[in-house]
Design a protein around this nucleic acid. Structure first.
Lengths: 233, 233
DNA sequence: AGCAATAAGCGTAGTATGTACGTTTAAAAT
DNA sequence: ATTTTAAACGTACATACTACGCTTATTGCT
């Protein structure tokens, strides 16, 4: 008699899988979170992260990308998986496991988001309202991740337009860490990293002297990453 | 006419959700990975991580804990979520999204694992065979996580018995980083952290002089963590 | 034309932290 | 008593981080 191995897949599975996105932006010297009025029952009309159920024929990462693009129109932005939330009763509507992604969007692009269409809104970190389900916990974790990440990855660039000045970049980091950072030491460290390409243009919107514009050297960064690069502000 | 909000949950969902565990141990001065002969079709009989489908009425973390306890008998070990893998065709048997956890088991406990029952086996890092599906990728990511984590969290203790000597701990770190670490500097840094409690006992199994035994001060560690503690070997 | 005002940019001294490496100590075996 | 071996301790040097003072470029005002 031949022993037939059991089939794991013989399950009466009634779980649903969702993706939710924690979307960060940077405006007016402050870090912001993008939230929405939930459109579906239960809890329709309440503030929520943006997300939806994952289809059978789509990869989870793909679903996250689509969700982000639908709402922001943005395509090539920083988007990484954060954590999966799967307690049994986290959603009163059904058994839904949510895989959460977090995203950083460029300052310039933020303006173009079709906020009206989706009843979406940017809110400052210290004005985040109560969100549905466990979404506040997701945001909390994402903020921690942002700070942790910023300790060893040059992440500030993801929140600024592709051309930016050193004082602008400094302010992004001050917003992330919620503390004053010495501008002279910051400048020294940033330039020493070799990841900034100085342009011949100046931005004179904030001073008479004007501050030089820089771009981030993504190619060089990728190279350094492979060599076990460690960055710290 | 009242506008009825759509219901997100009205989905013909045929996704399956699984948990898989990357289980690390430390024996004979080497880091080891626990692998198994897969019991279910497709690919039955091939090497694999341990895991299974998540039931509708169980939390994902709970499922991971159970999987780990079933195989190792261990209850209170280091177990953290690593990453979720969800490409469409990762599993030829069905559309399965896998949430991966990683675990560190204590050296003493490793012996007690009912290896025979499950056709399980500890393998050294440099002898990891080809595993089913995307399991090798999971392991690779877990190893990277282990190294990254060890940079800022005192993780070595999780792999040793509750009482250990400094030379033993040093060897764990050398195994993690795959390089020689200066024993004098290591000792200095470890003791300076204040996280080691020196005992009055000595372990004389490896030298005539004997090395003092220590325990890890978990309470103090939790306290420090809340204050934004950063550890580095 | 010259001077004040202001943000941007540059430089240095002091402190702390990490690294390299030599020396001493405890216990057992001879 | 002497040798042997791992364990434990100590110090000097180099590197990196921090704090803070000074100069520069430009505009607007007198």
């Amino acid at each position: 008699m031949v022993k037939v191995p059991p089939n794991t897949y013989a399950h009466e599975n009634q779980l649903l899988l969702a993706v939710d996105c924690v979307i960060f932006g940077y405006q007016d010297g402050e870090l912001k979170l993008l939230i929405f009025k939930r459109e579906v029952e239960p809890l329709a009309g309440q503030w929520s992260l943006i997300g939806r159920i994952v289809e059978k024929n789509e990869a989870i990462e793909e679903a996250a990308h689509k969700v982000l693009k639908d709402i922001t129109g943005l395509d090539k932005v920083f988007l990484e998986q954060l954590y999966s939330f799967g307690s049994v009763s986290r959603d009163p509507g059904a058994r839904v496991v949510s895989i959460v992604y977090w995203s950083l969007t460029q300052s310039t692009a933020n303006q173009e988001i079709k906020i009206a269409d989706h009843e979406a809104q940017w809110v400052s970190f210290n004005e985040i309202p109560q969100l549905v389900l466990d979404h506040n916990q997701m945001v909390k974790m994402a903020i921690e991740k942002l700070r942790e990440y910023a300790r060893y990855r040059p992440i500030g660039f993801e929140l600024l337009p592709s051309q930016f000045t050193l004082p602008q970049l400094l302010k992004v980091y001050e917003a992330i860490y919620q503390r004053k950072i010495d501008d002279r030491n910051f400048r020294k460290k940033m330039l020493a990293s070799g990841l900034l390409i100085k342009l011949d243009k100046k931005d004179k919107s904030t001073s008479k002297k004007g501050a030089f514009l820089y771009k981030f050297d993504r190619k060089k960064y990728k190279l350094l990453l492979q060599q076990g690069y460690w960055f710290e502000v």
